[in-house]
Structure formats: C-alpha cells, structure tokens
Nucleic acid binder design. Structure first.
Length: 900
RNA sequence: GGGCGCAUAGCUCAGUUGGUUAGAGCGUCACAUUGACAUUGUGAAGGUCAGAGGUUCGACUCCUCUUGCGCCCACCA
C-alpha cells in the first residue's frame, strides 16, 4: 500500500479475516513449526449447548494473549482448541427445544437412538459455530490438534480411565440416597446442585396420639417412610424412650415401626429436639440409617417417593399422588386427627437441578461412585490425598509437581473443599454422553447371571464370556457418565493419552490454565484428580482464576435476563482488538468485571490511535532509513528520554505479563504509547525531524502490543516490518538505555511547556496568538536544558520569543514556578486576578512546606525512616521552598507595580 | 451457622512487599477543526480512600470492630 493511501481510520472489518487466514497458513499456530521450550495451554472446551458469549471472549483473550506473548518470547507454544459435548446440559437443552416443538416426552416418543441423533445434530451445529467464533476472536490455536470430549480419541481416554479406576476398586456401584431430578429423569452430583432460598411451611406433629414425641418437618409426606426418631443422647425429655419401637399407622401400606434412636447430631434446641428419620428421602437420615446398621441396631428404609415424583405403593393411601397432593392430604389428615401441633413459615434452602431447574428429590438408588477416600492400590494414598498434595507439597512431595493457583485465596477454598469431599456420583440416566463401559451377564433367566455373579465387567467391548457362568450374553449398563468425567482428563486426553505420544511427553504437565471461579470445584479439582491418578502428574503448573463478566449493572449475563451480547456482533462493529483490549483492561484476577459499550469505544479509539501513530511515522519516515535506524544521527534530550522510558516500559510490561497482570500491562503500555510516545515524542519529532528512532520504537511497540491487539498490529507490521509480526522476537529491555538524568531533564521541558499552556488557557489566549516568555533560574543545568530545547518549547507552547532572563519585564506578567525555575509569560495581566491565582498557589505550597517540615523536624522520622525516604523528603522540601520564594517574589513585584 | 470477596473522583476500576501533594479510562466544563488522528488536541474542575479504634516516626495499604453490597459452603429436620 502506498504511504499516501493509508486510510485515516482503521477499519478492522477490512483486515481481520485475511490476517487470520495468513496466520493460519503460516503454520505458526502449530508448535511443530516452532522451536524453543514447550509451552502449552489447553483451552477449556466450551459446551456445545449454544454459541459463545462474552465470557468466552474474555477467556479466549486471556489465553491468546498469553500464548502470543510466550510465542514471541521464543517458546514452542501449543494452544489446543476444543469443545465439550456436555452430556446432561446438552441433552437438557435439546429436550427443551423438542418439547417447545410439541414433542411432550422426547425420550419416550423418539427412543434412545433417534433422540441421540437429534442431540448429535444440534451439537455438531453449535460446535461449528463455536469454532468459527474462536477464529473471529483471533485465537492462535493449533487447529490440527482440535479436540472434542466426545470424539474417538477422547472416548478412548475416558473408557481407559474408567476401567483403570474400576479395576483399582475406586469406582464402585453403591446404593444410597442421590439427588434426583424428576424433570430430567437423572441423578446429578452434589456439585451440580444449585440452592435457592424459598419459604416453606414447617409442620410440627405426632405420628399418633399415643406417640410420645412430636417431630417437625417441611416435607410431611415423606414421613410415610419414617422408620425412626432420633434424639440427642443427653436429652432428658426423651432419654427414657431410646431403644423403644412404636408402631404407628399413618396411612402407609404397612404400619410404621418407629425406633427411638440417639444421635449426637440432633440439635435439642431445634424444634421439638427430635428428628423424624426418613432414610429413603434424606441424605442425612440415610447416613443415620447406615450408622445404625453399623451399630448392629438397624432401622428400616421405606422409599415412598418414586423416580416419577409420585408416591409409591409403599405410601399406601397416598400411592400415585404427586408429592404436593400427598403433602396436602397428609396435613389434612394430621389436622383431622388432632395430631398437628404447630404450623409456621420458615425460610429454607432447597436444592435444584442446575440444568433442569426442578427441585431435586432425594431418592435411594444404585449408582456408580468414585471413592475419594480409598487407598489407591500400590500408592499408599487416596485420590483425596493426591488432590491435597497437588496444591501444597506437590505430588509425592515433588515441588515441580505443584499447581500454583492465582490468586492465592482460591487455594484455601480448594483445600477446604477437599476436606469435606464426598464420593462423586458418576452415573447419569441421560443418553447423550459416554456410556458406562460396564457389562452385566444376562445368561440366565430374567437376564440375571446363572451363577448370580453380580460382578459386572468393565470393558469397552462386549466381554467374551462370563467368568462365573460362561455365558456370552451381556448387556451394557444403560447409564452415561457425568460430563465432568471426560472434561477432567482434558489436559492429557488432548495430548493423546493413553498412547505414550510425543505430545504427551513434550507438553504435559501443561503450563497455564485459566478458568472462572465458578468451575473451580467442578473442573479444576477433577482435572487435578484425574491427572494425578492417571499420569502421576499435575495437569498444569499454573491456574489463573478469573471472575465473571457482568453487564453494566453488575448483573450476570443470562438468557433469562435478556442481556446477552454476541461477541461476534461487537467484533463486527468495533473490531476484535477493541473488544480484546477492553476486556483485559480493568480486570484483576479472581474478581468480577463489568462490560459496557463505553469500554469498547475506548478500546476502538485506542486502536485507531495506534493506527494513526503508525500512519504518521510511516508518512514522515523515509523507508530507506529503516534498516539503519539504530544509528542516531542526533541524540537529543527527547531521544535519550524516550529510549530510557521505553526501556523501562518494556521491562514493566514483561514483568506484568509474567505475573498475569494483564490489565496493568495493558494500561502501562497504553499510557506510554499515547501519553508519552504520541503526545510528546511525536510532537517533538515534528520539530527535531526524527526518522529512524520513530520507526524503531514503533516497531518494538507493535511487538509489545501484538499479544493484546493482534490484528491491527499485524496490519501495520506489513508496512514497517518483514515477515509475520506474530513470530517476531519479544524485545529485551536494554538497561543501559536507562537514563535517570535525561528523564529528570525532560520533565523540566514538559513542565515548562505545560505551565505555559496552562497560563495561556487561563488567560484565554487565542491558540493562534504567539506569546513571549522569559525564563529565570539560578540553576545553570536547568537553564541549559531549557535553552537546548528552546525550539521544542516554542513550538509546543506556541511561544514567539524567549527573552533574555536578565531583562526586567516592563509589565507584570503571568508566572509559572516549578523547581528552581520561574517562567514569565508576557501578557496584559489583570493584577488583581493574577494575585488571587498566586495566593492560591502560595497557600498550597505553604501547606506542603509545613507538613514536610514537621516530618523533617521529627527525630523519630529522620532516625527510623529509611535514608532514601528522608533524602527524598529533604529534596522536595527544598524545591517547595524554592517555588514558594518564586511565587512570593512575583507577588511583591505585583504589589510594587500597583504601588507605582 | 461458617467462610470469602468488595467498599478509592459522577461512573468503571488501578494502587505490587506501609513512605506519591492518592492515579487512569469514561463522563463533565472551557478552548481549538486545512496536514497522523475529532475514534482528535490543549487545559481545568472533581476524592476527609465506607465508619470507629489500634499498631507505627509514618496507614488507601497491617490488625480489631461496625455498617452496606455480593458470592460460596453447611445434615437445623
């Protein structure tokens, strides 16, 4: 593009797709084409339940920024893209859609195969959308390694992992109370329960007139399945009943046998101090049931609610009723019988299904579980132990196998959770997902093994024969796996595990993982668990936890609030770079951030600023000079200053990025680019006629900006560099360019210019009108610095002439005082208002001087504070005194003038 | 019931081991529009750092308490 043809405004839309295509074509997204130390980031696979939202845009930006930074630093960077089949969530989503289309019960009406087919179609469609969105976001990921949690390779890993865990005895089938979604007809794990607060009625009643103890419940209908009443062992009111069994008839199929038991966990202060125990429909009560069993003092277990949410046959008079109807009927009966003692409103937390939304029922069922407490054969520790070690000592005490979590407070949350970790319910009754690789022998009558072996065989393929009865008839477990089971293996399944691949050897443990805190328990813990178990390695060295992106009012983005924003639309309108920079600036690790258009506009404006900086540099630079740029023809103060500042900035940006301080890195870089390079150095270059230096800084600036704003920088690079910017080396801060003196001197020049502009503005001097100034100072160095920069000062503050400092101004002038310097601006000043202005300035100075003086006179301060601090304070004190005397001197001049 | 986070300019947020006359972006006000950029430039106004104590020579920063908002966890049925 000829220089003169560079458009005035950067139109992102015109370049982004072609730039992305060029990157892809270059092959540099694939680490096989790079050299250096390996650096791997596995992109959290988005669920194929829909399209990406702004939160994903934030994640992509974080990862891509880090990937590009590391690639430019010479790392062999692997960024793996992928998607998650999201078993239950996706099925829930598709079922909902089908129901909206009029298919009342998709599972019944379509059957397993056809429904799975529908879900697959939907999943493929959203997968395609998601992948194109990831491209639009500029993500420099390796498409040749694209993965899907439900593809062949990942299925292989899932099965292998399951079978290993099963054969190690860590996965087992167990009967216990689970969370059951009636709507979803499936279990879910404790981590997928969402608690909501609501009001409920708490009923206090007795089972029968002659029953000695009253109990309370918000779910009286479940009491049809009660088998015990628990009281505190020391509760004098009830001690005498402990051990007795009462027979009561509450309308259940059979009269209930209620045993009075003692348990420490019962709170004597709450309600009546007695707890009606319903082992089948409360996890707590089920625990009591197990405990009693262990104590050889068993109590019964009567399921009165079925999987369809209605009362079972065991509920007798209530069989077939919904729980709500049963409750009503039961309460009416209590009332009629005069058994109801109290009825009160209470606030309570109920668990709901995070995907189906219905209130979960507690039902006793046989499900597959992962045992986190059992010792792993041959390893002398449990999965829980591994999970703990991974974030504390490192696995087996190996500190190189330790996960660092940023910010650190999440480490504590993680550890607290580990201490309370319970077995993980793995099986789901939905059809979309990895089928549990377990087979049951059906050789005998009624599909039961002839020998009644009850030992299912874990295998991907149908087993050849049953070891017990030698039958070859099997059926596979109908259930599927919790979707997090496959996501848990993501960091190594993506690298080819269980094959001993080169990728696995090269890139695992991966280097960096980012995720929102909302999936800390669901995902981070499972990845650590799986990886530690399967590979004996942590999944990643560093985990960066980010907050949730909210809307401008701080509300979560959600479909129900209707506040969703399509990142692709934002990109179309403002450009990907604008979106990226606005998402990064203003965030801090672990904390939520807000999104609003003004931020995007500000990002877009900056993109355009960078574009115009480049436009100016390109237009004002002879391209032939580019290559010999480094030899400075002249080395003015401005040159030394900008190089010194730039050396500092390069170091700061690098440090910030290494510490994942994206926001601070971006802000500092923007400040330098805009407020120092553009506002000062570029302006001075118009006076001093720069060329090489401008280009040199611009080129390095583009490198620094590239991880944040990959597109615009790459477009500009075409004009000023060779090859692709994305693989240019990251600049190394040259400490020898640091020049404290130049920075101090340049500050004087800036102050001179700024204070003249300030006076011009206050006195409303027309911008076109030039003024004369006079500079007075006793400091020879300052004087010579300013004189060296006379032309810059004249041009940037629109000064016509600088008068000799010895001359006495004939007329009162407006003055600016800084350090040892007083600048007089010749203006027809109004003596009174100038005096007011000076008085205000004087007061401020006096106040500061007083404050400083107090400190300096305090022996404790001078003796205890570090010498550096004291020295700085003294310098500032001296300077303030200087400035004050300048102001006072001028005030007296004004007084004299008025007098004369 | 336990735990965590947040509270700094009108708005959104920085502030890195305690030492600045507390910063930025947006917004506001004034002025500027033929040469990089109005998606701009120049200048200005705007904060007793939620409140109260404490530690310290020195606190936005550390400790305690209080208030308000948000989040997570928990077997008060």
């Amino acid at each position: 593009m000829p220089k003169s043809d560079i458009p005035k405004a950067y139109e992102a839309r015109q370049y982004e797709d072609q730039i992305y295509a060029a990157w892809e074509k270059s092959g540099f997204f694939n680490p096989d084409n790079l050299s250096g130390d390996p650096y791997a980031i596995m992109m959290p696979p988005p669920n194929v339940t829909g399209i990406l939202h702004l939160g994903h845009a934030l994640e992509n930006t974080l990862m891509d920024t880090m990937a590009r930074f590391q690639r430019m630093r010479g790392k062999k960077v692997l960024l793996v893209p992928g998607t998650d089949h999201a078993a239950l969530p996706t099925q829930a989503k598709v079922e909902k859609m089908l129901m909206e289309q009029g298919i009342k019960n998709p599972r019944q009406e379509l059957g397993r195969e056809a429904l799975v087919e529908k879900i697959r179609d939907f999943a493929e469609q959203s997968k395609a959308t998601i992948l194109s969105q990831i491209r639009k976001m500029g993500t420099s990921c390796d498409w040749s390694r694209l993965a899907y949690t439900f593809d062949e390779k990942r299925s292989r890993a899932v099965n292998e992992l399951f079978i290993r865990l099963y054969n190690d005895g860590l996965i087992y089938r167990g009967y216990r109370v689970v969370n059951w979604s009636v709507k979803g007809q499936s279990t879910c794990s404790d981590d997928e329960v969402e608690y909501i607060e609501r009001t409920a009625k708490l009923y206090t009643f007795k089972y029968a007139k002659d029953f000695p103890i009253a109990i309370s419940s918000t779910r009286p209908e479940t009491k049809l399945g009660d088998t015990a009443v628990a009281v505190h062992p020391t509760d004098e009111r009830y001690q005498k009943f402990v051990g007795q069994t009462f027979i009561v008839d509450v309308g259940a199929a059979k009269p209930l046998e209620i045993k009075i038991i003692a348990d420490e966990h019962v709170d004597p202060q709450f309600g009546t101090g007695a707890l009606g125990v319903t082992p089948a429909h409360s996890p707590i009560d089920f625990a009591l049931y197990e405990k009693q069993k262990a104590k050889q003092d068993p109590i019964g277990l009567i399921p009165v609610i079925g999987t369809d949410g209605t009362m079972t046959e065991q509920a007798g008079d209530y069989a077939g009723l919904s729980v709500e109807a049963a409750r009503e009927k039961f309460v009416a009966w209590l009332r009629r019988e005069g058994l109801l003692e109290k009825e009160e409103e209470v606030r309570q937390e109920v668990g709901t299904s995070d995907r189906y939304g219905d209130v979960l029922e507690a039902l006793p069922m046989t499900q597959w579980w992962l045992d986190v407490n059992k010792e792993i054969p041959g390893r002398n520790k449990s999965l829980r132990d591994l999970m703990r070690e991974a974030v504390t000592t490192g696995l087996d005490g190996d500190s190189t196998q330790r996960v660092t979590i940023t910010p650190d407070r999440f480490t504590k949350l993680y550890l607290d959770r580990i201490e309370n970790l319970r077995d993980w319910c793995l099986s789901r009754q939905v059809w979309w997902g990895h089928r549990i690789p377990v087979w049951y022998c059906t050789g005998g009558k009624d599909g039961i093994c002839l020998q009644d072996c009850r030992h299912p065989i874990a295998s991907v393929q149908k087993p050849v024969e049953c070891p017990a009865c030698h039958s070859d008839k099997f059926k596979q477990d109908p259930d599927t796996l919790d979707t997090w089971f496959s996501s848990g293996s993501w960091t190594f399944s993506t690298l080819g595990w269980p094959e001993p691949t080169k990728d696995l050897q090269t890139f695992h443990p991966t280097d960096w993982m980012q995720m929102g805190y909302e999936i800390l328990y669901l995902w981070l813990m499972r990845m650590i668990l799986m990886s530690s178990y399967a590979l004996g390695e942590i999944p990643f060295k560093e985990a960066y936890i980010h907050g949730i992106l909210r809307d401008k009012d701080g509300k979560k983005f959600s479909k129900s609030s209707g506040n969703g924003i399509d990142p692709i639309e934002v990109i179309e309108q403002y450009g990907c770079d604008a979106l990226r920079i606005s998402l990064l600036i203003g965030i801090s690790p672990g904390n939520d951030s807000r999104y609003f258009v003004e931020k995007i506009e500000s990002g877009r404006n900056f993109t355009n600023k960078l574009w115009n900086i480049a436009r100016f540099v390109i237009q004002s630079t002879d391209s032939s000079v580019i290559l010999s740029a480094s030899e400075g023809s002249r080395n003015t103060l401005a040159d030394r200053w900008i190089r010194s500042r730039f050396a500092t900035v390069i170091q700061e940006i690098t440090d910030h990025l290494e510490k994942y301080e994206f926001s601070q890195a971006g802000e500092k870089l923007r400040d330098f680019t805009w407020n120092e390079f553009a506002d000062w150095y570029l302006e001075i270059s118009k006076v001093e006629q720069k060329n090489g230096m401008l280009l040199q800084i611009l080129r390095e600036l583009l490198v620094l900006w590239h991880p944040f704003m990959p597109f615009v920088t790459e477009v500009i690079w075409k004009q000023v560099g060779e090859g692709l910017l994305m693989v240019q080396p990251w600049p190394i801060a040259d400490a020898s360019l640091r020049d404290e003196q130049a920075e101090q001197d340049f500050t004087l020049v800036q102050q001179a210019i700024t204070s003249i502009r300030n006076i011009r503005a206050e006195y409303k001097v027309e911008p076109k009108q030039l003024v004369n100034i006079q500079i007075q100072t006793m400091d020879d160095r300052a004087a010579s610095v300013l004189m060296e920069n006379v032309e810059n000062i004249k041009k940037l503050s629109r000064v016509d002439a600088i008068l000799p400092s010895t001359a006495t101004p004939h007329n009162p002038s407006a003055i600016a005082v800084f350090g040892s310097i007083t600048i007089h601006v010749s203006l027809p000043v109004d003596v009174a208002s100038e005096k007011t202005r000076l008085q205000k300035a004087r007061e401020e100075k006096q106040h500061y001087i007083e404050m400083t003086q107090t400190k300096l006179e305090n022996d404790e301060f001078t003796s205890k504070a570090p010498a550096r601090v004291v020295k700085e304070m003294k310098e500032k004190f001296a300077q303030a005194k200087n400035e004050l005397s300048g102001i006072e001197h001028q005030m007296s001049v004004l007084d004299n003038h008025r007098a004369s």
